[in-house]
Design a binder for these strands. Structure first.
Lengths: 328, 328
DNA sequence: GTGAAAGCGCTAACAC
DNA sequence: GTGTTAGCGCTTTCAC
């Protein structure tokens, strides 16, 4: 392996000077700079990042926790994060929690072992109480998910509003028996979505039937199962509000096998506005989330925090948009 | 920050002994082991990985290059890679090349700056000639894509066969005017897919019409554009063989807007067997690829290489399977 | 079994 | 402007 010492020798200079050139530090004459550059080229020198990291006590890597890579919504967030990261010369370490509490917590050792300079969380499995002790080991930022009482910066969407306009849409379409398929965790997002729905129902003099509340459904397959469950009920909702386009797509797919018509027999509203929402038939009415945008904001915030800038921890949420298509 | 020195002091022992305990080395008495463990717990000590990496001259990180994270096929490969990586105590650094030649090449600096111990490539933008000089900087393994003349281990699928059975299926259905939408790069995969198609055509006394060959289409949007192009032709194919379910889905979607019937006006065959293939209507006939499996094999090979085991560079390809649904 | 000491490759005071 | 030197936190001879 070629080291800085080799380059120094080859250029007839000291390691300090070579280091200055590598890091674009001032106080090096053009002449010596050229000498160093030549030596580096000739020897094919590349600085050893482990050594740099040990010396500088930072890695320039940010850990990004997502539930799973199969969900386009999180890929979009990553896209936004990556864009800003690249601009700031930071790398990403992408970690799948698989929606597992323990895995999520374990990834905080990245911070403790100094493998990353900070962590961005896009989903939350644990309660804030579980997290809070880990937050001392380095900057942590929440992106998408949030807690009311967390003390770290949170980049969030206006889930309460989003859920409200979705529910209103169903009510305006004449539905009075509305089911809900949502997270059911203790996070702010999860609570706010349910709150928004309830608010809309209440305003219309309706209430949320406990039999029509379904938790922890994420995938297309989950959606299909859910549809089977619903079909088996005596008293069925006429519309269902879901937490993701995947679940909604599963419901629609299964409804066809079951010989039921969407939206006539069951109206379905998704969440995310993924590509699949356009592809499936009937096309999915859904709530569009500016996912890439929150990714960008989260990373910008991380950069600010790493630069010791003070920032507001609880930023106001961005707005969501209802996309009306054919499933409602 | 708590260092090994702190732990040593606290336990009243030397740093060497602490290090032995951390790394489960023999020749430490149970008594002292306990002393060290207690000190580590009490102080909340975690070893600094930059220091470990510098000292050990390895990172235990493998770089994985994929074109983009939005493609489920590559996510599946990653899933397989990750499974074996976890078992071997290795971490993954996932990198998107965005199908950019330069970006792909740039990621090899990860190897040169010792940020990763090895690289797994799942797609190829550059020719083998471009790559070969970089291969000296550390272990490189090809997974999915391959070159005939490459000197690195290659985990591959039997693309020639896969393409052949797909084309045969189309021919058996009575099609004589078959279009092809494929990579068009110099990689073995790209060449073999075209070869398999040509072989099937030849056997049936047909040939590939140059007007019906389309390159570099990857996304749903690309598929829609492609369908528009095809529709605008005077002499149109009656069936099209695509390189991915996304493109195929785009074709189907657009055909509906255009008022054309799949498969009657145009039969479409996909590649990958992604979730979308089941969801879209008509459901997609496609070639199933054991993507997770090649990911696993690739990582197993990487582990073997890192352990200095000799391995065969050009392993025989795994077989592909035709899934017949409604689009053909 | 245990410890002292050297050194992985790099950067940054500090001296000149 | 440039070089000398110390040290980031860790592991591993080598001596005892």
């Amino acid at each position: 392996m070629i080291t800085i010492t080799d380059v120094a020798k080859h250029a007839g200079l000291s390691r300090a000077t070579v280091s200055r050139v590598i890091n674009n530090r001032p106080y090096v004459s053009e002449e010596k700079k050229k000498l160093v550059r030549n030596a580096m080229d000739k020897l094919g020198y590349y600085p050893n990042s482990s050594a740099q990291r040990l010396r500088n006590q930072k890695t320039n890597i940010i850990g990004v926790l997502v539930p799973r890579l199969t969900n386009p919504f999180f890929i979009n967030i990553i896209e936004g994060i990556e864009k800003i990261a690249a601009e700031s010369g930071l790398q990403l370490l992408i970690c799948q929690t698989k929606s597992d509490k323990q895995k999520e917590l374990n990834y905080f050792t990245l911070l403790r072992t100094k493998q990353v300079d900070g962590i961005i969380l896009t989903s939350l499995e644990n309660d804030w109480e579980q997290f809070s002790p880990y937050v001392d080991y380095g900057p942590v930022i929440l992106c998408n998910e949030y807690y009311e009482n967390a003390t770290v910066p949170m980049i969030r969407l206006n889930q309460y509003e989003g859920s409200y306009i979705g529910a209103r849409h169903l009510i305006d379409r004449g539905h009075r028996k509305i089911g809900y398929c949502g997270g059911g965790s203790t996070s702010g997002l999860s609570k706010d979505r349910k709150r928004g729905l309830k608010k809309a129902l209440e305003e219309a003099g309706l209430s949320l039937n406990p039999n029509w509340i379904f938790h922890k459904r994420y995938s297309i397959e989950d959606g299909r199962e859910l549809m089977k469950e619903i079909t088996a009920m005596e008293d069925r909702p006429t519309a269902i509000f879901t937490n993701s386009d995947e679940v909604a797509a599963g419901i629609i797919k299964e409804s066809k096998e079951l010989g039921l018509k969407v939206p006539d027999d069951l109206a379905v509203i998704g969440f995310d506005n993924q590509p699949i929402a356009e592809l499936i038939e009937p096309r999915l009415t859904t709530i569009d989330q500016p996912s890439e945008e929150i990714g960008e904001k989260a990373m910008e915030t991380m950069v600010a925090v790493l630069n010791q800038q003070k920032i507001d921890t609880n930023l106001k949420g961005l707005n969501l948009k209802l996309i009306v298509r054919d499933s409602t």
